[in-house]
Nucleic acid binder design. Structure first.
Lengths: 190, 190
DNA sequence: GGTCAGAATGAATGAACATTCAGTCATAGG
DNA sequence: CCTATGACTGAATGTTCATTCATTCTGACC
């Protein structure tokens, strides 16, 4: 009997977590504060998640997946690689600028010990939808011979971290930065 | 009567903080655990630092400064810009590989709300020794017209994050990555 | 309208936390 | 040798934390 209300409560808890972690970090964010921010009782989070770690992990995976989908959504399959790269990049930018809390949550989770657990879990899960996307595999094939994680960091890491700092970016800076990321991942002689 | 012993105790506390944060993150690292790891009593940390925040901030600034000095130490003032860039980059790499805990501490602190406080404090402090170094200003002058923080992120961010993951890097990967970072910060038509 | 499963509640619990402080100790200056 | 100074100690303090659970609520189904 999982109702729509129940789903929304679980979502409210996840979003409250994102908001509070963005503002106060992982230390400084208690389950009581999360519940209050979500407008539910303290026990409610435990109806949907076994523990705080479980909640954090689920939220982290959801944020990452939503980011991947948003990025992929704006890509034209028939465009050139360089154009696709720009579309992917601005897809990430606009998705995160729409709610910078997501970016702040993401960078903190990625740097924390949670990232190790999340990584393991992602490995054991079925194929990553990002890595199995033809657009992404096509782009990766054209890039320098570095491990995919490193290429991701070079390609879109800067946007994620920059949107996390809240400062809005000039149009001119954005253009220069996309160009810089593209240069990083592609070799001139190829 | 600040003795050598006192100085070493303060240092022991800072290093214990780095080790534990690297392993357990900021949440998950208590003052009691820090003191135990440092081999001192719980009260000792408070003789040298007013609070946990104070300790974290002092440690963060020390780690950052040591990294800057180590990076600068290996640079030949008469080398070409590209060579100097490589020397700076490997300086960071070797300094962090010598104790990857520093890298793990650094990335976590940089993503946490501590970073805001630290940034403010760095601004109000006297001139940043890195930014006033002729080598660094010389290099920055040759780079793309992006804010210095962004250029730092593009130039050495990848090494810091990569050494933080503990995995040792292949020599061939390192060469490709330095080249990628250099391409990112420099425009081909200049 | 009665029954039942699961969602929701929030006060209660015990562990863990940052911080304090009364007292001990080491040492430098006299 | 004595004393003053500041480092050091660790048990004690009050708070905050994650988690639990007996209970109440909700709405689906017969």
């Amino acid at each position: 009997m999982t109702t729509a209300v129940a789903v929304n409560r679980a979502e409210a808890v996840r979003h409250a977590l994102i908001r509070l972690v963005a503002r106060d970090g992982f230390h400084g964010t208690s389950m009581a504060a999360i519940a209050k921010e979500a407008g539910v009782a303290t026990g409610t989070a435990y109806v949907h998640y076994a523990s705080k770690d479980d909640l954090v992990l689920a939220t982290y995976l959801e944020v990452k997946q939503a980011l991947g989908e948003a990025a992929l959504a704006g890509v034209d399959p028939d465009a050139t690689s360089r154009e696709q790269f720009g579309q992917l990049w601005t897809g990430v930018q606009h998705h995160l600028e729409a709610d910078p809390n997501r970016a702040r949550f993401l960078v903190q989770a990625d740097c924390s010990p949670y990232a190790d657990t999340a990584h393991e879990q992602a490995m054991s899960a079925p194929d990553d939808p990002l890595m199995s996307s033809p657009v992404v595999t096509g782009l990766l094939a054209q890039m320098v011979d570095l491990p995919p994680e490193v290429l991701f960091d070079l390609a879109v890491g800067p946007v994620i971290r920059l949107t996390a700092t809240q400062r809005r970016l000039d149009e001119s800076v954005v253009e220069l930065l996309i160009e810089a990321c593209w240069r990083a991942v592609t070799s001139p002689n190829s």
